[in-house]
Design a protein around this nucleic acid. Structure first.
Lengths: 242, 242
DNA sequence: TACGATTATATGTCTAGACATATAAGTCAA
DNA sequence: TTGACTTATATGTCTAGACATATAATCGTA
């Protein structure tokens, strides 16, 4: 085996190949649509086996940086501004990461038969029992977010017995429900009397709303609405270019 | 080679292995923290070579479904609710996808030397020229979003000569700047006089704000603020469980 | 008991082949 | 010119090995 290019291979070879190609795409040397070298050409350039360059190219394809077409070759993909990774952190983690004291307070908890509104919100047709929870998260004793949650007990029966007076329902679910899918909807509203009171802000002040709907294998688990003061809270989504 | 499990391998073997494991994680059969079989055990179970199961496990690790630790094994990771893929679609695409007529209108365009505020917004220190653009996107002639953008001409000199009267600056940049990274910040505000007028909404109505800052290889390209009527517009982020 | 050295082992990377398969490109007939 | 057929080729997947390396577990010593 030989190193056809430059320096010593501190990282592994396939990572270096991947980084080399990534760099050329990033700098624009290889613009969108450009055909990158065939595998056998890269094999010759780096003096390695095909499996090694294949691993590098496969990862680039998985990251949507390139597109691979049989018989045709591999091509640089057009950048997709529209896709970004949004980090909706666990609230406790978010607050402690800011170096502030996390506070949690259960405001309301009720177990009831699902109303029509509940079923609509959870996206289920059958009647069943639900737990409705309202709570507040605070940072250094200042209200940070209010949470209004509905848990489908037919999916998570254990939630009926759970004590949410000290542990937030979000973290409880994280520890008791195996793996989930979720959909987030972000919107803006102005605070009504009730919201303003809960968040200690003025009526008419802007609020950022995150509605999260969570399910597992087509089974509804929970629906939650998080309300943040809109002028102080910000969601940051960083687009990864690979 | 043999098939130790069930049916014929319509998809490829490593995909089947990956899907099998993914399923057990999803259903909760293998909860977070659970050690999944060692590579050599999977090799025995599926009757294939180690590289094949390694490929399956590597992809699961890349998708953050499992964590691999040398000498210890591979473990099911805790679900990460906080990470979601936010689709911030190109506005034109978003509107046409809704089956509505896309409209674009340039409100203001000015080429100027960067002011202190401009440099602050773009995150650059050196003085230089910028293009400032204000424009409006509409759906079926109803205001959909107003865009306020700053382009750094030292990074994108061609933008000085670009005509943004018909083509939105976002799509122009997409076609002229090779590959970019971006950071999005989402917040909520209430409409002031100016905003209310531009979006044809009431003063004090909620607005969703997306601030996008774009760069390439540590070079600033553009900063843009998009304002949407908060009660009608929604950002949807779907969390993929693998 | 606590700590440092040794060992066993699962993963990480890599090779030099192989056959499968989709498809771009060329060929030939209607 | 057009359509159907053939061929060449780049990628997709897979094998049966190999050595490297981080580290959990064990063992030995202070």
């Amino acid at each position: 085996m030989s190193l056809a290019t430059d320096a010593a291979d501190k990282p592994t070879l396939y990572k270096r190949i991947r980084a080399d190609i990534e760099k050329r795409i990033l700098t624009g040397e290889w613009p969108p649509g450009h055909r990158i070298p065939f595998e056998h050409e890269l094999v010759a350039r780096y003096g390695c086996s095909r499996m090694t360059v294949n691993k590098a190219l496969s990862e680039l394809a998985q990251a949507d940086l390139i597109e691979r077409r049989r018989r045709a070759g591999s091509f640089v993909r057009r950048p997709q501004h529209q896709s970004a990774v949004l980090k909706i952190a666990d609230i406790r983690a978010e607050i402690t990461a800011l170096g502030r004291a996390y506070g949690y307070e259960l405001i309301h908890r009720k177990l009831r038969a699902a109303t029509a509104a509940d079923r609509d919100r959870l996206g289920v047709r059958k009647a069943g029992k639900v737990v409705s929870i309202t709570c507040r998260h605070s940072a250094d004793n200042v209200p940070f977010a209010v949470e209004d949650r509905l848990i489908d007990l037919s999916s998570v029966p254990a939630a009926a017995a759970a004590d949410f007076s000290r542990e937030p329902p979000g973290s409880w679910l994280l520890h008791h429900v195996p793996w989930t899918e979720a959909e987030h909807t972000i919107s803006a509203i102005v605070a009504d009397d009730h919201t303003a009171d809960a968040l200690a802000i003025a009526v008419g002040a802007p609020c950022l709303v995150i509605d999260r709907y969570t399910w597992r294998s087509a089974r509804t688990i929970t629906a939650v609405r998080l309300l943040y003061p809109g002028d102080s809270h910000r969601l940051v989504a960083r687009f990864k270019g690979g």
